[in-house]
């Protein structure tokens, strides 16, 4: 079985969010880059767990990005990926990115494509669904567990106010979230072997950008907290009821 895991490069969760060039670009100065946590902790680690259970499974990684994404791809290889593919282009239109991944996925005839539930920078949660449509495959979103038996996947996924269990035949696209697997740290053997694992660079295919980012803005600063004395909790309830009209 061949699994393709999409790996996005995102700013660290504690990175300062600021913009430059007249608020048209994210300010990257001093920013630490990481694998998008949903891609790493859930999609990638689950793929590696499936490979540990069944050594015939191979785990390929795909990133659409510049050469500066290679350190995070090496980390993903150190965690246990077999091979990485970097599509040498940048973009922030999800249709354009999904088109690149779909082309690689089609060429590689993968049985399973895993993505994180969203990236923590653009919060689009759209690559998985777009990819599935481009590949004409079913898509199970927000999966919290995934088991493979033969050609059948058993997936649990979040629904509003609960969860549902799904059976689907491979090939399949699944977006992963908390519950799917536990975060890991690469070990020394993984780090050493990652240096020699293949990291292929391929050129992008022609695809359109259907959207473009015009500018960014930061939310207005909060007015500041209104503190109520601990002895007067009734005043808090009054404020919430009469001033904030929360209930």
């Amino acid at each position: 079985m061949k699994i393709l895991v999409s790996i996005s490069k995102t700013p660290d969760t504690t990175a300062k969010i600021a913009f430059t060039d007249n608020n048209t670009k994210f300010a990257t100065d001093g920013v630490q880059w990481i694998i998008n946590p949903y891609d790493e902790w859930y999609a990638l680690v689950r793929a590696i767990e499936l490979k540990e259970k069944d050594p015939s499974v191979s785990v390929h990684l795909i990133n659409v990005g510049g050469a500066d994404a290679e350190p995070i791809l090496r980390k993903a290889l150190a965690l246990g990926g077999d091979e990485a593919i970097r599509v040498n282009t940048e973009g922030n239109d999800s249709y354009y990115i999904a088109s690149q991944i779909a082309f690689v996925a089609k060429e590689g005839t993968y049985d399973l494509v895993l993505t994180g539930k969203e990236t923590i920078d653009f919060n689009g949660s759209s690559i998985g669904g777009m990819l599935a449509e481009m590949l004409d495959l079913p898509f199970v979103s927000l999966a919290t567990s995934l088991e493979i038996s033969g050609i059948t996947a058993t997936v649990k996924r979040e629904i509003e106010g609960g969860e549902e269990s799904i059976h689907a035949d491979l090939p399949l696209v699944v977006s992963c979230q908390k519950g799917m697997a536990e975060a890991r740290i690469p070990n020394m053997r993984g780090i050493m072997s990652a240096r020699t694992k293949p990291l292929k660079v391929v050129e992008p295919v022609a695809a359109e950008n259907l959207t473009s980012i015009k500018s960014f803005e930061l939310p207005p600063a909060k007015a500041g907290v209104k503190l109520v004395s601990a002895d007067d909790a009734g005043e808090l309830v009054r404020l919430l009821h009469e001033e904030a009209k929360s209930f």
Binding site: I213, F216, P219
Partner: peptide
């Protein structure tokens, strides 16, 4: 739209 997990907004043009 909301980006960076609610820490900022982006103004995105749809070209289609």
């Amino acid at each position: 739209k909301s980006v960076f997990s609610g820490k900022a907004f982006a103004r995105v043009e749809i070209n289609t």
